[in-house]
């Protein structure tokens, strides 16, 4: 027992730092969610108000689309890129490095660049589409309510798929060459090799990365806030941005905290369900 208490003494400084950095903000958010701006206790009034706001359900559905759209294509393109980069071809090292670029570029820089490229009148994308006559008139990518969310998702996919690719590539490279050769002798085509050898072997990597991507997409602010701030007409308003704007544009810290608390709860449930259903595979228990 003596030993154990000495142990606690040693980790006390670290615990205090962690406590201040993690526990305090969480607790303080909880406290904020039940007080008004003057610090008076108001019970669940903040929750009632924020749930009654018209933007809240919109933000909820937007967040759902944003997360689903981002994850599916980030994983899909990431895995495809990894398989491609795992093949032997001339200039592979260069292609591997170039693939990483979107992930390395700071989010705010990428967002600003894309905003310019997507500009209705001066953007290169509309220029490239109108010049050869692919479309008659410029598309308002960021002002049209039907295109703006898909465009945001596309930028997010572009930004994050290299990360997936590199992680999956590392997984692919740990597969012994013998397995591919055995599969070839067993008569597997390239796609059968992908399906029966590569993907099962990197399954755990993909599961772990998807979880990270879900968390990151749920908490995302940079790209959308830098380009549209949630507009036009709340078409790209996702919950984290709603929280941010409620707090710092609307100065409703109590309501923002209340929304955070609920969002935190939903996120925890999603992550929990994900881990239970996908990440634990009894067959592969080691």
């Amino acid at each position: 027992m003596q030993k154990q208490s000495t142990g606690y003494l040693f980790i006390l400084p670290a615990l205090m730092v962690l406590g201040m950095l993690i526990a305090y903000p969480v607790a303080y958010t909880g406290l904020l969610s039940v007080t008004d701006n003057a610090g008076n206790f108001v019970g669940l009034e903040n929750f009632r108000r924020v749930l009654a706001a018209r933007a809240t359900p919109i933000a909820f559905w937007n967040t759902l689309w944003w997360v689903l759209g981002s994850i599916i294509f980030q994983v899909l393109f990431g895995v495809m890129a990894a398989i491609l980069l795992n093949q032997n071809f001339r200039g592979r090292a260069i292609v591997r490095s170039v693939t990483l670029v979107p992930w390395v570029v700071p989010g705010i820089v990428a967002a600003t660049t894309w905003a310019w490229m997507l500009h209705t009148e001066f953007g290169i994308i509309n220029y490239m589409l109108t010049a050869p006559g692919l479309i008659d008139k410029p598309i308002g990518w960021l002002t049209n309510g039907n295109t703006v969310m898909p465009v945001m998702i596309a930028i997010n996919i572009w930004k994050m798929f290299p990360f997936v690719a590199i992680m999956v590539l590392a997984g692919l490279q740990s597969i012994p060459n013998d397995l591919y050769e055995a599969a070839r002798i067993d008569g597997a085509s390239f796609w059968e090799e992908v399906w029966y050898v590569m993907l099962p072997q990197v399954r755990s990597v993909i599961v772990a990365i998807t979880l990270l991507l879900v968390i990151w997409a749920l908490n995302h602010i940079t790209i959308i806030y830098a380009i549209t701030r949630g507009g036009p007409a709340n078409k790209t308003l996702i919950t984290p941005i709603q929280i941010f704007r409620t707090a710092f544009d609307g100065m409703q810290f109590g309501q923002a905290a209340a929304l955070s608390v609920m969002f935190f709860g939903v996120a925890i449930v999603i992550v929990f369900i994900y881990i239970r259903t996908l990440a634990s595979n009894p067959e592969e228990a080691r």
């Binding site: 397995l179 050769e181 002798i185 008569g187 597997a188 029966y196 050898v197 072997q201 592969e284």
Partner: peptide, 19 residues
């Protein structure tokens, strides 16, 4: 291709599919 040769091979590492 290997699959068209009607051969089977046993590897030193066995190369069994772990999954």
């Amino acid at each position: 291709q290997p699959k068209e040769r009607d051969i089977a091979m046993v590897f030193q590492s066995y190369a069994l599919y772990p999954h």
